[in-house]
Design a protein around this nucleic acid. Structure first.
Length: 408
RNA sequence: CGGGCUGUAGUGUAACGGUAGCACGAGUCCAUGGGGUGGAUUUAGUCCGAGUUCAAAUCUCGGCAGCCCGACCA
């Protein structure tokens, strides 16, 4: 991709109201456009990042047997009434043109919807277990959208639902989902703590959240410095300095962002909705369920919150919009050749080919956009050389062009 | 949803109730070319609606929006 082909542009200034680092850098870099508070468009750069995150999530969900599907955002009243979630004051109700009362809400979760689908196909224990997921836009009428992409009214979420014949089978899958989640967060460069938490509107049981430590987080968690056991303050009796209930290590308090969660729903929804299967003895039983969420857009924002410096973002290579940010300061013909060769080698390159920007501006933009590797071509180095610098490093070094491929 | 603060150009700011101005940005052109360079030139604004007034960015009321605190919260 050539910089001059991008229809977006970076900006130096941003509204003073934008206090969250993720909002500042993502907007300034041209990753997202803020349509309304908590409502964002993903621009070409941001969409590339989102797609990379989604690809990782898909890979890990597929590995544990998740089957991807796609459900409607419009959810009719009939789905949510049986579980008492129609009037929960969470959704945006779709405007109805010819009835006084709205009959659709914009989906903020999809247990009921998928269960309606599943009921068409599940009748026997032989139909279980299975799990299905989607990556879709969710809508929640947040009383207070804030912190950039961290708390939106509209956001991207991966929601997976699992269906089982027994509690034991659910918990077996629950463990595998946990491992898959930890893998996902690790792959996008984050350290996530598996945290015991309350279930909110989803289940009366305790559940688990995946928490990433960062000052902007809205949650408070207690983490053991020894075994990394963690509890959310909302259910915890711990306080900083306490002994870990698991290993007696010292517990510390941290602010954190909930990037994912897993709920052992059990039969909470299958009972009211009548989702049953016949077991081997011919007896009807409610399906045992779990649900598992990852906020894709929140995850993207969290990565920015954790990986940045005063100049901009430091994307991990796994989710960076491009691996390489190539800057031409002079001799565009020469740089063009390098660009073409990198592209032919399958390297994702953002080539800053602008001829009306100064070196300082190009460097500043490269730092802001945050691709892992910066390459610079200029008169200062020999024809067969190129300058390389990792975004995480302060100093650049000059290498021979023949060594370029091996250095990426 | 309660409380607080605030709405003037993309950003930051001025203007006694009396001509909406400045800087930066952005666009164009020229020069420049290793950390946001210099010059010329262009562009763009009083959140919306009522009211008071000869006259409203300014005063009043009502909306709406944004930010912060709290409550809430996959």
């Amino acid at each position: 991709m050539k910089f001059t082909q991008l229809f977006t542009r970076t900006t130096r200034e941003i509204s003073a109201d934008e206090t969250a680092i993720n909002a500042q850098y993502l907007i300034r870099g041209g990753f997202v456009y803020k349509n309304s508070a908590g409502v964002y468009s993903f621009l070409p750069l941001g969409w590339r990042v989102a797609q990379k995150i989604m690809a990782i999530v898909r890979q890990e969900m597929n590995k544990i047997g998740g089957q991807e599907l796609f459900m409607p955002a419009l959810v009719e009243k009939k789905f949510l009434e049986p579980t008492g979630r129609w009037n929960l004051d969470v959704g945006f109700f779709a405007k109805s043109m010819n009835e006084k009362e709205a009959s659709f809400t914009l989906g903020w979760t999809h247990e009921e919807v998928l269960m309606a689908i599943a009921s068409r196909y599940v009748s026997s224990y032989k139909d279980l277990p299975f799990s299905a997921y989607q990556i879709q836009t969710k809508f929640r009428n947040e009383a207070r959208a804030k912190s950039g992409l961290l708390r939106g009214r509209e956001f991207m979420m991966k929601d997976l639902y699992s269906f089982h014949a027994s509690e034991a089978d659910l918990m077996d899958f629950y463990e595998r989902a946990k491992e898959a989640y930890l893998k996902i967060f690790s792959r996008v460069g984050l350290k996530a703590f598996y945290t015991l938490a309350a279930g909110g509107d989803f289940t009366a049981n305790n559940t688990h959240e995946f928490q990433v430590v960062t000052p902007i987080g809205e949650d408070t968690i207690y983490i053991c410095g020894g075994c990394e056991y963690a509890e959310n303050k909302e259910i915890s009796n711990l306080k900083a300095g306490d002994a870990c209930p698991k290993c007696q290590g010292v517990v510390r308090e941290e602010k954190s962002v909930e990037v994912g969660n897993i709920f052992p729903l059990g039969t909470k929804y299958s009972v009211p909705l009548g989702l049953e299967f016949v077991n081997q003895d011919g007896v009807k039983n409610p399906v045992v369920m779990g649900s598992y969420g990852i906020g894709i857009s929140r995850l993207m924002a969290t990565i920015v919150e954790v990986m940045n410096d005063p100049k901009g973002i430091l994307w991990p290579e796994s989710v960076a919009p491009f691996k390489v940010h190539l800057i031409s300061l002079e001799q565009p013909e020469r740089v063009e050749k390098i660009y073409q060769r990198l592209v032919e080698d399958g390297v994702e390159v953002l080539y800053d080919n602008r001829d009306d920007k100064t070196a300082g501006e190009k460097f500043a933009d490269a730092d802001l956009i945050g691709c892992p590797i910066r390459l610079v071509v200029s008169r200062k180095i020999a024809e067969d050389e190129i300058e390389i610098r990792r975004r995480s490093e302060s100093a650049a070094r000059v290498i021979h062009l023949n060594d370029l491929a091996a250095s990426l």
